[in-house]
Design a protein around this nucleic acid. Structure first.
Lengths: 142, 142
DNA sequence: TCCTTATATTCGCATAAACGAATATGTTTT
DNA sequence: AAAACATATTCGTTTATGCGAATATAAGGA
């Protein structure tokens, strides 16, 4: 189980919160983070490692792509705070802009090379709860 | 209004969380922090300044003493997270030990000099909600 | 097998956070 | 007014965090 220190430190960084905001409702592969957030790939990977270590996200590989998604923390307090944090993020202008950019990129016919090749998330489908999302994904992956 | 960054950074420090845990249910003056947590006075003051800046606590002066207490953040998301955090703290062994030490010091006839002179909190009275506490205090201070 | 693509990690550096020691400020007491 | 007391701030140093550039790993395709 992850320490409170690790948990809060993970949330105390803007880039990490921007990443969490993008996978609020669905998993994404790494290239979308670099493209939408406009930050270098090593930086994104480092922050993802941080979030993995804090057990806030998990990754699965599919061919060349790594998909990241949020996981419900084991600790109930942490889970509660994470939910509240995601709601807070969803309420913020900057975060909404990131999300809009993601949707734009997904539907753009002139997407950048890397994105054009990457499997696109079904971003338009409105998410249910995080738990439902993950159960659904688990079933799919069986 | 305080930024999300400032808010999370404030919570991402162990000493600050230990301080918040001690004033979970009542205000305290600074010397109790240094005594219970066993950390130097400048360090305590610096962390209190941090919490003040993040608008998580407020201070009032009474003579030589400065009393600190938790305030409900204006932002509802922040308020929610702060509450959850305090509950989380209350569930932790280390934090409970701090709290026990506080109670012990308050009731000890052989308290350290500084503590012996300081006005003691009514620690034994079980707190109601934070809001009720603060309203009560405000009324008292009129 | 070699080359390309997607992602992760390492390295050296820059910036920020936390610290103890010393000092300053504000208040009461003598 | 001076001394004592409680708390806050400043200063110089240490430590942790974040960063870009370069490099490593891992998978797929030629």
């Amino acid at each position: 189980m992850v320490s409170m220190q690790t948990f809060f430190t993970a949330l105390a960084d803007k880039t990490r919160r921007r990443i969490l905001n993008l996978i609020r409702d669905q998993e994404l592969c790494v290239c979308f983070f670099t493209e939408v957030l406009d930050v270098g790939q090593p930086k994104v990977s480092r922050h993802l490692a941080y979030l993995r270590n804090a057990e806030i996200v998990t990754a699965r590989r599919d061919g060349k792509w790594m998909y990241y998604r949020i996981v419900e923390p084991e600790d109930l307090y942490a889970a509660q705070i994470l939910h509240d944090t995601l709601d807070w993020l969803a309420s913020q202008e900057r975060m909404r802009a990131d999300y809009e950019k993601l949707k734009l990129i997904c539907s753009s016919p002139t997407a950048p090379v890397q994105i054009a090749r990457a499997p696109k998330p079904n971003i338009l489908r409105k998410a249910d709860t995080l738990q439902q999302k993950n159960e659904e994904l688990d079933t799919f992956l069986l």
